[in-house]
Design a binder for these strands. Structure first.
Length: 492
RNA sequence: GUCCCCAUCGUCUAGUGGCCUAGGACAUCGCCCUUUCACGGCGAUGGCGGGGGUUCGAAUCCCCCUGGGGACGCCA
C-alpha cells in the first residue's frame, strides 16, 4: 500500500475567494479525488489585521458553491486539526523553540523602520534588498537576556551562507537557487504570531501534506521553505507550481480586469460547473479536442503532468460561451428555477408570486433559453413580456414601417386575431396559415411588422409562442398601437 | 537592480525529432438552415518571437538575444 496522497488549499481570509485561488483549489481538489487522496482546507489567518471571519465564511461558501468539498478542515474538523492557524499557536511556539535551541534561528531586534529604510536604500542603489544579518552576529545568551528584559524582537531563520537549494518541481522540473541570494527571513513577528512561511511549513509537515500544489508566484518562497523543512528535520513534500492567471493585458489578474471573485460570477448568473470547467482549462488540457468535461470526467482525466508551464489569460468571452452551453443543457425545471429569480431581481416581477405568475414567468424564460449566456442578461431578453405597452426600437420601427403599404392587410390581420377563439401557438398558426393562403402574402412580410409591433423589437423567439404568452388582449392592443404609430388606424 | 519562471493563431491550448502542408476550442468574418434572433451545420482568416547551433530531418534538443511575468514584507 502506497502513501496516502494529501493535498491542501490554504487561503488567507482577507477577502473573497479569488479566481486564481479557486483554480488552485480546483487543481488540488481534482488531484486529491483522482488519486483517492485527502483534500485539506486550512485557513491561514495569521495576519491579525486583515483576516476576518466574514472572509472565512465567503470562502467556504464559494468553495461549496463550486462543489469542492474538503475532507478535513473548517466545519468538519479532522485528525490533524484545528484547521485555523490562529488556533495552532502552541505548535508554532514549540517549533520555534526547537529552532532557537538548535541555533537554526535567532532573535532579531532590528526595528521594522530601520529595515524598511535599508531596504529602500538597497533597492535604490541596485543592491540586493536582503537582511544584512546584524542580529545574526549577536551573542545568543545576550540576545536571550534582551528578550527576557522585554525588548521587542522577531525570530529569523538562519539561511546557510553557501550551497544551493534545489526545487524538484512536478511541473517544471529542477530549479536551482543559490542560498546566498536568500536572506534570513522572519519566522515569528514582534506580536508573537508566525509568518506565512513559518506557519505554512510547520502545518504542512504536521498535517502530513504530501503534495503542495500552488501558484507559481510562490516559487521564490519555496527554497526558503525547503531550508526550513530541513532545519525542522521534516521530510520534504512534492512541489507543483501551477502557472498564474493573467488579465487581458498579461499582468496578474486584478480588479482592473473586471470581476475577480467567484462570488461575483455567481451573482452574475454563471453556473458553478461552468466556472469549474473553465478554470480547469486555464493551465490544463486533457487532449487536443476536448473542452467540455463533466465533474466526473475532470476527476478521471486530471493529472499534474498535463498542467502547462505558461501563464494563462482569463478570457471572459470563452467563459460566457461555455456558460451558454451549460445553460442550454439544463433540464427545463432547473433552468426555470435559476432564471426566474433574475427576472424578479430586475424588477420585472415582484414577490410574492402567485402560482400562475410563477408558471408563466417560467414559460417566458424558457422561450429564450437558447439565447441566454449569463442569467443576468435574461431580463433584457424577456423585458417586453412585462408591462402593457412597448416602445419600438429603431430596428423595430423600420420593420413596422413596412406595414404602411399594406394597411388593409394588417387591419384584416388585427381583425382575425381579435376574433380568434383559441389564442394559442396552434390556434394562431392555423389562423395565420389560412390568412396567408387567402391573401397570398408572404409569411415574413406579415410576421416582421407584427413582431415589431408586439415586442418593440426586430427579433424575438418564435412569433406564435410570443403571442400566446403575451395573451390575446395585450397582443391585440400592441398591434393596434403599433399600426397606429405608422398611420394605420384600426377603427377606419 | 538582483534572483527565478515562461515563450505555438487575438485568447485557451494539442504537439515531446519525421504522423505538422502545425490540430482543436473561444473570438472574428462568410455561407447554409430559418418568421427574425439565438441554436446548429459548413467554411475562411490567423500562430511555432529572433539569431545561432545539433541532426539526414526541428514547433519539438542546446546556446544567445528579445519579450513577458513573478519574487525580493514583522502579506499570504
Amino acid at each position: 500500500m502506497t502513501e496516502q496522497i494529501r493535498v491542501r488549499f490554504a487561503p488567507s481570509p482577507t477577502g473573497h475567494l479569488h479566481i486564481g485561488g479557486a483554480r488552485t483549489a480546483l487543481f488540488n481538489y481534482l488531484y486529491a479525488r483522482r488519486q483517492n487522496g485527502v483534500f485539506v482546507l486550512r485557513i491561514e489567518d495569521t495576519d491579525a489585521e486583515r483576516s476576518t471571519d466574514e472572509s472565512v465564511q465567503m470562502i467556504l461558501h464559494d468553495l461549496k458553491w463550486l462543489g469542492m468539498t474538503w475532507d478535513e478542515g473548517p466545519e468538519i474538523g479532522g485528525p490533524f486539526g484545528p484547521y485555523f492557524q490562529t488556533q495552532r499557536l502552541d505548535l508554532y511556539r514549540e517549533k520555534l523553540e526547537f529552532l532557537l535551541e538548535r541555533g537554526s534561528a535567532y532573535y532579531c531586534f532590528c526595528s521594522a523602520d530601520t529595515l524598511e529604510k535599508k531596504r529602500e536604500l538597497a533597492m535604490a542603489t541596485g543592491q540586493q534588498p536582503k537582511y544584512d544579518g546584524t542580529c545574526r552576529r549577536l551573542n545568543p545568551a545576550e540576545a536571550k537576556a534582551r528578550v527576557q528584559a522585554g525588548e521587542p524582537y522577531v525570530v529569523r531563520l538562519k539561511i546557510p551562507d553557501a550551497g544551493s537549494t534545489i526545487i524538484d518541481d512536478k511541473i517544471r522540473g529542477k530549479m536551482v537557487f543559490e542560498n546566498s541570494v536568500l536572506d534570513d527571513y522572519v519566522l515569528s513577528r514582534t506580536n508573537g504570531l508566525p509568518t506565512y512561511n513559518f506557519a505554512a511549513v510547520v502545518d504542512d509537515a504536521a498535517m502530513k501534506i504530501t503534495h503542495i500544489i500552488r501558484g507559481d508566484d510562490h516559487i521564490s518562497n519555496t527554497p526558503r521553505q525547503i531550508i526550513l523543512y530541513q532545519a525542522l528535520g521534516e521530510a520534504l513534500p512534492a512541489f507543483a507550481h501551477v502557472p498564474m492567471i493573467l488579465g487581458s493585458d498579461k499582468t496578474r489578474l486584478s480588479k482592473r480586469h473586471g470581476a475577480t471573485s467567484v462570488g461575483a460570477y455567481a451573482d452574475e448568473g454563471f453556473l458553478p460547473h461552468t466556472m469549474v470547467n473553465y478554470l480547469a482549462l486555464l493551465g490544463w488540457a486533457f487532449d487536443d479536442k476536448t473542452t467540455l468535461f463533466t465533474p466526473a470526467q475532470l476527476i478521471e482525466k486530471f493529472s499534474l503532468k498535463k498542467v502547462s508551464k505558461n501563464p494563462a489569460v482569463f478570457d471572459p468571452a470563452k467563459l460566457q460561451w461555455m456558460n451558454g452551453v451549460y445553460i442550454r443543457q439544463l433540464p427545463a425545471e432547473e433552468y426555470v428555477a435559476r432564471a426566474v429569480p433574475f427576472i424578479i431581481q430586475a424588477g420585472l416581477l415582484h414577490e410574492p408570486l402567485s402560482e400562475e405568475q410563477r408558471a408563466w414567468a417560467g414559460r417566458v424564460a424558457l422561450l429564450v433559453k437558447e439565447h441566454v449566456k449569463v442569467f443576468n442578461e435574461l431580463p433584457r431578453h424577456v423585458q417586453y413580456f412585462f408591462g402593457e405597452t412597448v416602445e419600438l426600437d429603431d430596428a423595430a420601427g423600420e420593420k413596422l414601417a413596412l406595414a404602411k403599404e399594406r394597411a388593409e392587410l394588417f387591419k384584416a390581420l388585427h381583425q382575425k386575431m381579435s376574433m380568434l377563439e383559441s389564442f394559442t401557438h396552434a390556434g394562431l398558426e392555423e389562423m395565420m396559415k389560412a390568412f396567408i393562403a387567402e391573401t397570398q402574402v408572404k409569411f415574413g412580410d406579415l410576421v416582421h411588422p407584427l413582431r415589431a409591433a408586439v415586442t418593440g423589437r426586430a427579433n424575438s423567439p418564435g412569433i406564435f409562442e410570443v403571442l400566446e404568452l403575451l395573451g390575446k388582449e395585450r397582443a391585440i392592443k400592441r398591434l393596434a398601437a403599433g399600426l397606429a404609430s405608422v398611420g394605420i388606424n384600426i377603427a377606419d
